[in-house]
Deep mutational scan, measured.
Amino acid sequence: SKDTIRINGIDIDVKDLHEEWKRLVEEALKRGDEELAIELLERALKE
């Protein structure tokens, strides 16, 4: 798994994120759902 995830052309540092969150965000991006990916990231970062 990578340490960054690219959303809207912005590389976001996710190395401190739990693997499960990372996977969910990557799944959302694979489906092209950037809005969901951002929402998941925000939730993950609050934890």
Results as ranks from 00 to 15, higher is better:
1 S>L: 15
1 S>I: 14
1 S>V: 12
1 S>R: 08
1 S>P: 12
2 K>P: 15
2 K>E: 13
2 K>F: 12
3 D>L: 01
3 D>I: 10
3 D>A: 09
3 D>F: 00
4 T>V: 14
4 T>F: 09
4 T>A: 07
4 T>P: 05
5 I>H: 04
5 I>T: 02
5 I>N: 02
6 R>I: 07
6 R>N: 11
6 R>D: 02
7 I>R: 02
7 I>H: 03
7 I>P: 02
7 I>Y: 01
7 I>N: 01
7 I>M: 05
8 N>Y: 02
8 N>K: 14
8 N>T: 05
8 N>A: 12
9 G>Y: 03
9 G>P: 02
9 G>C: 06
9 G>I: 03
9 G>A: 04
9 G>D: 07
10 I>K: 15
10 I>M: 12
10 I>G: 04
10 I>F: 06
10 I>P: 01
11 D>V: 09
11 D>N: 07
11 D>T: 08
11 D>F: 06
11 D>G: 04
12 I>K: 04
12 I>L: 07
12 I>E: 01
13 D>C: 11
13 D>H: 11
13 D>G: 05
14 V>R: 02
14 V>P: 04
14 V>I: 15
15 K>F: 07
15 K>A: 11
15 K>L: 09
15 K>G: 13
16 D>L: 12
16 D>S: 12
16 D>R: 10
16 D>T: 12
16 D>E: 10
16 D>F: 13
17 L>P: 01
17 L>H: 01
18 H>G: 13
18 H>P: 12
19 E>S: 04
19 E>P: 15
19 E>Q: 05
19 E>G: 06
20 E>H: 15
20 E>C: 03
20 E>R: 07
20 E>F: 13
20 E>N: 15
20 E>I: 08
20 E>Y: 14
21 W>A: 15
21 W>L: 15
21 W>K: 14
21 W>C: 14
21 W>D: 15
21 W>P: 10
22 K>I: 15
22 K>C: 08
23 R>G: 12
23 R>P: 09
23 R>S: 13
23 R>M: 10
23 R>T: 13
24 L>F: 04
24 L>K: 06
25 V>G: 00
25 V>T: 00
26 E>T: 10
26 E>L: 12
26 E>N: 11
26 E>S: 07
26 E>G: 05
26 E>Y: 10
27 E>W: 01
27 E>C: 08
27 E>G: 04
28 A>V: 03
28 A>H: 02
29 L>Q: 02
29 L>H: 01
29 L>I: 10
29 L>D: 00
30 K>L: 11
30 K>S: 15
30 K>R: 12
30 K>N: 11
31 R>N: 10
31 R>F: 10
32 G>V: 01
32 G>S: 03
32 G>M: 04
32 G>P: 01
33 D>M: 10
33 D>T: 02
33 D>E: 10
34 E>H: 15
35 E>K: 15
35 E>Q: 15
35 E>M: 14
35 E>L: 14
36 L>G: 12
36 L>N: 05
36 L>K: 11
36 L>S: 07
37 A>M: 03
37 A>P: 01
38 I>H: 08
38 I>N: 07
38 I>L: 14
38 I>S: 12
39 E>R: 15
40 L>M: 09
40 L>P: 00
40 L>A: 01
40 L>K: 00
40 L>D: 00
40 L>Q: 01
41 L>M: 08
41 L>F: 04
41 L>C: 03
41 L>G: 01
41 L>W: 04
42 E>L: 11
42 E>Q: 10
42 E>W: 03
42 E>V: 07
43 R>P: 00
43 R>W: 03
43 R>G: 04
44 A>V: 04
44 A>D: 00
44 A>F: 13
44 A>E: 01
44 A>L: 09
45 L>A: 13
45 L>V: 12
45 L>G: 07
46 K>E: 06
46 K>W: 02
46 K>V: 08
46 K>P: 03
47 E>V: 06
47 E>N: 08
47 E>K: 06
47 E>T: 09
